[in-house]
Every structure is written in C-alpha cells, then in structure tokens.
C-alpha cells in the first residue's frame, strides 16, 4: 500500500508542462488551487460554519421559529443545567447507551475480526455478510424491523415462548427498551470489525511465531502480542464509536415511537434536542442543547486522547 501512494507523484512529473519561473508559478498554482478548493470552501462556509455561527447566536436568544429572536443571554443554558429534569434524563439515557453499546460493539467487532482473520473457507463471503448490518446502518427500515422483533408478541418472544420463557415486551417496557437499542448498535459492528481486520493483518507473523516458540498459548499470545500491537486501532475505533454513539438518533426515534418512550426510557440526547426544536419549536433552547452537546463530546474526546498515552502502544516510539 505505502509504495503505491508514494509512486503517484512520480508518474505525474513527466506529464507536467515546462515549469515557469518558481515565484510566478507558485502564485498561479495558488490561484488555481483556490479555484479548485472554492466549491468545498463555499460548502464549508455556507453549509457548516454559517449555520454553526447562527446556532451559537440563537442559543443566546429565545428564537421560536418564525418570529424574530430576542437576546436572553445565558438563560437557555441556565435553565438547561438547573431546571430541566427531562434534559438530565436524556443525559442519563445517553450515557447508559454509550457506556454499554461501545464496549459491546468493539468486543464483538474484535472477536469476529479475529475469526475472519483465520484461513476459513468462503472468507470473503463471511466478511461481506458481517459487514452488511453496518451498511444498513442508521436506516429506518432496520429500526422498524428491530421494533417488530422485540415487541410483546414479536419473533424474539415467540422463540422464547417455545423454550418456555414468558418474556416481557422488550421495546414497550422502560426497564428493557434501552437494551434493545444497545443490542441494535452492537449488531452493527461491521465498520470497526473491518478496521480491526486491517489492523490484525498488519501484525507481523514473526512476532506471533516467536511467542509460540517461547511457549505462549493462544490466550497469552492474544493478550501479550496481538492486543498491545492493536491498541492504536482500538483507540481509533473507540474514539469514532464514542462520538458516533453519542449522536445516535434514528434508531431511538423509531424504536421509541418518536417520543423517546416508553416513559422517556429511550430519550437519547439528540432525540431530546430534536423534540425541543421540531416539536416544541424552541429553537433557541435547542441550539443551547446542541452547543452543550458539542462541548461535551469534545471534552470527552480530549479525555480519551489524554488517557490514550497510558495504554496505546505505537510501534514507532521505542
């Protein structure tokens, strides 16, 4: 792989026109570079930075929807953090969701990746099959199917009934509904699995063989060789999954019937944000919710990076 990337500029050099004097060439290049960048820059400014700035401004106003916004200072933030039990509930639900789904998903992803890293017959077929649920990702269809599976008289309970187990209605009971969402997230382990798989294939065989020769069994080879070498990959997956899970929306929207129900048990953060904005039309308040969210995820990611130095092993720092 690395050689292919490195060779690319080389092949292009002969095709270039005769170079102009260096100084002029640089400005001309810059200009053209600017032209080619323009669509992306325009997109960034108009579609990302612009709305972000607007949302930051709105978060300090009482902006409803069509009326004009009035400056209220930090009132939205104050109310959010001190006088909104539903908001606290949404944080609780989200933390449970992230705290359970991320480790579970990563564990399954790593396990399946290890299995698929062996010399199995029809390996590429299995890889595709295991990746499939992730392609369907946040799709509404999958969430609807999930709701059907775990409902009171759904497939899961019919199966359990055959085994003589009288199970509750998973999605309709606030004690269990969040776990159906966790299970759905864990089932979609394909993306981290692929990344793990790529990482596993980078681990030098020689190291594993040397460990075997030294008498290491499967378990200690995994914990002493594979896992340490895999930590950068694990770290990458962890960061991406944590950020992704915090933003979970469509699954909770569908399974919780658009309300985060039953009894607010699936009211994840982004769903509460959505309800504030598009159900109650409190755009200013919703903007404040969004900004606290952004800061929260940023802080958590920073903590993640901070701690990474204690457990992530990079091969190049001896």
């Amino acid at each position: 792989m690395p050689t292919a990337v490195a060779s690319e500029p080389d092949t292009q050099v002969p095709a270039r026109p005769v170079p102009a004097p260096p100084a002029r060439r640089r400005t001309a290049d810059g200009r053209w570079g600017g032209v080619f960048l323009a669509p992306w820059l325009l997109g960034l400014v108009l579609l990302t930075l612009g709305p972000m700035a607007a949302s930051l401004y709105f978060s300090f106003t009482d902006f409803g929807l069509l009326g004009s916004p009035h400056w209220v200072g930090g009132k939205n933030y104050a109310e959010l953090l001190t006088d909104d039990p539903t908001y606290l509930q949404s944080i609780k639900v989200t933390l449970v969701y992230v705290g359970l789904s991320v480790p579970l998903k990563l564990a399954i992803a790593l396990l399946v990746a290890m299995v698929l890293n062996t010399k199995l017959r029809g390996l590429s077929f299995y890889r595709a099959v295991f990746y499939l649920p992730s392609l369907l990702g946040a799709s509404v269809a999958v969430a609807i199917m999930w709701r059907q599976l775990f409902t009171g008289d759904g497939v899961v309970n019919r199966f359990l009934a055959v085994l003589g187990i009288d199970a509750p209605s998973w999605v309709s009971n606030p004690d269990y509904s969040i776990y159906t969402l966790v299970a759905l997230a864990a089932w979609q382990f394909g993306t981290p699995m692929l990344i793990f798989l790529a990482g596993l294939q980078q681990i030098p065989r020689t190291l594993l063989e040397a460990a075997s020769v030294d008498g290491a069994g499967t378990v200690s080879r995994f914990f002493r060789v594979t896992l340490p070498l895999l930590t950068p990959i694990l770290f990458f997956n962890l960061v991406m999954q944590v950020i992704g899970s915090f933003q979970a929306f469509s699954q909770a929207y569908v399974v919780g019937d658009g309300q985060g129900g039953p009894a607010e048990s699936t009211l994840v953060y982004s769903l509460y944000l959505y309800k504030a904005a598009f159900v109650e039309f409190k755009m200013g308040y919703a903007s404040a919710i969004a900004w606290v969210f952004l800061l929260g995820i940023a802080a958590l990611t920073a903590v993640n990076f901070l701690f990474s130095r204690y457990w992530v092993f990079y091969d190049d720092e001896h």
């Binding site: 009971n173 004690d175 309300q259 129900g261 039953p262 009894a263 607010e264 109650e280």
Partner: peptide, 17 residues
C-alpha cells in the same frame, strides 16, 4: 397545550410503569 399533552403522557407512563 401540545407540550402539556406530551408531559401528561410521559408522567402517566411513569406512574403506570
């Protein structure tokens, strides 16, 4: 009023469960 209706459902559910 719509928000009251939503809250009514939520709290009734919390009682029911």
């Amino acid at each position: 009023g719509g928000d009251v209706s939503g809250a009514f459902q939520t709290y009734a559910d919390k009682v029911a469960f």
